[in-house]
Computed example of a mutant assay.
Amino acid sequence: MKATLGQDSWQNIVHHSDLLSIYEIQLSMNEHANHNIALPFDSLLTVTEGQIFLESEGEETSLKANQAAWLSHNQPLKCVALSDSVRLFIVVFVGQTKRDRKRCERFASGTEHKHQLSSGITHWTVESKDLGKIEWVMLPALHKEPAYYLKASEQYILPLNHNGALSITYDQKTAYAIDKSGIVIEKSCSRSLINRSSKPITYLSIISPYPSRSRVLKV
C-alpha cells in the first residue's frame, strides 16, 4: 500500500506479518522534507540513499546511506531530508516493547563486530537478541550460497549497493532478482542467495525472532 506525500515523496508498506512490518519512505527536500514518526513497537531505521537528520526528545543525530538507528516504541521522531532525495526503511518488530532508551542510537557496519568466513562472506553483526539478529552481509563476487532455511524466523533482505545482481532461488529452482525494496522470506522456506556481479554485494539482513538455532542446510 503506497501513500503519496507529494510528487516525489511517498510511504509504502513493503511487508506486514505477525513478526515484522516494513515501511519504505522517500522524502524530497523540495516538497516534503520533514516527516514525523511514532511507532507502537521497537524498530530499526536504515537509510539507503541520501542523508537524513533525526530529532527525538532533545536528541539529535544524522544518518547517511547504509547507516542505521534503533528506535524505541512510542518514541516521537522527526526526520528531515538533508539531501535532494532521501530513501529510508523502517523495520518494526511487531509486539516488541523491551527497549526503553528514547534516543536515536546510530550504528553502521564499520562500528560493529566483523567476522569473515572461510567462504569469503563477511558479516557485521549487531547484537539484539530481544528483537532479532541484525547484520550487514557482504557476498563475494559470483558467489552462490548453499540452500538453507530458518525453522521459526522470518528474514528481511535489503540490498544496499543495489544493481539488480543480488538474486534468490527457492529449492534450487528459477533465480529471481531482488529489487531495491528488498524481500521477506517466510520461516521454514528454503532459499539460496546468488551474487551475479563481478564485484562484492552488501545487504542488510534482519531475522526475527532471533534464531534459537543457526540456519539449517537443505540436503
Rank of each mutant, 00 (worst) to 15 (best):
T4Y: 13
L5A: 07
D8G: 09
W10A: 02
V14R: 08
H15D: 05
H16N: 10
H16M: 11
H16S: 12
D18L: 10
L19C: 13
L20W: 01
Y23V: 01
S28R: 04
N30M: 10
H32D: 03
N34C: 09
L39G: 01
P40M: 07
D42S: 09
L44H: 03
L44M: 13
L44F: 08
L45A: 12
V47R: 01
E49W: 00
I52S: 03
I52T: 01
E55I: 08
E55L: 05
E57I: 06
G58E: 06
E59V: 11
E60P: 02
T61V: 12
T61N: 14
S62T: 13
S62M: 08
N66T: 03
N66W: 10
A68W: 01
A69L: 03
W70M: 09
H73E: 06
N74T: 14
Q75H: 11
L77E: 05
C79V: 02
V80F: 14
V80M: 13
L82N: 10
S83P: 04
V86P: 01
I90H: 02
V91H: 04
F93E: 01
Q96M: 08
Q96A: 14
Q96P: 00
R99H: 05
K102Y: 07
R103W: 05
C104P: 02
C104D: 01
R106H: 08
A108L: 08
S109T: 01
G110R: 03
H113G: 11
H113L: 14
H115L: 12
S118A: 15
G120L: 07
T122N: 08
H123I: 13
H123V: 13
W124A: 02
T125L: 15
T125W: 09
E127I: 11
L131R: 04
L131H: 07
L131S: 05
L131C: 13
G132S: 09
I134A: 07
M138Y: 03
M138C: 05
M138I: 04
P140D: 08
L142N: 15
H143V: 02
E145Y: 06
Y148K: 12
Y148N: 01
Y149S: 06
L150A: 04
K151D: 09
A152P: 02
E154H: 10
I157N: 01
P159E: 10
P159K: 15
L160Y: 00
N163G: 06
G164A: 05
I168K: 02
Y170L: 10
Y170T: 13
D171R: 07
Q172Y: 09
K173G: 14
K173H: 13
A177H: 04
A177Y: 02
K180H: 10
S181L: 04
I185P: 00
C189M: 15
C189P: 00
C189V: 14
R191P: 00
N195H: 05
R196S: 12
S197A: 15
S198F: 10
S198C: 07
S198E: 10
P200Y: 15
I201G: 00
T202F: 08
T202Q: 15
L204S: 01
S208W: 01
S208E: 03
S208G: 11
P209E: 12
P209G: 06
Y210R: 06
P211W: 11
R213T: 13
R215H: 09
V216H: 07
L217K: 11
K218H: 14
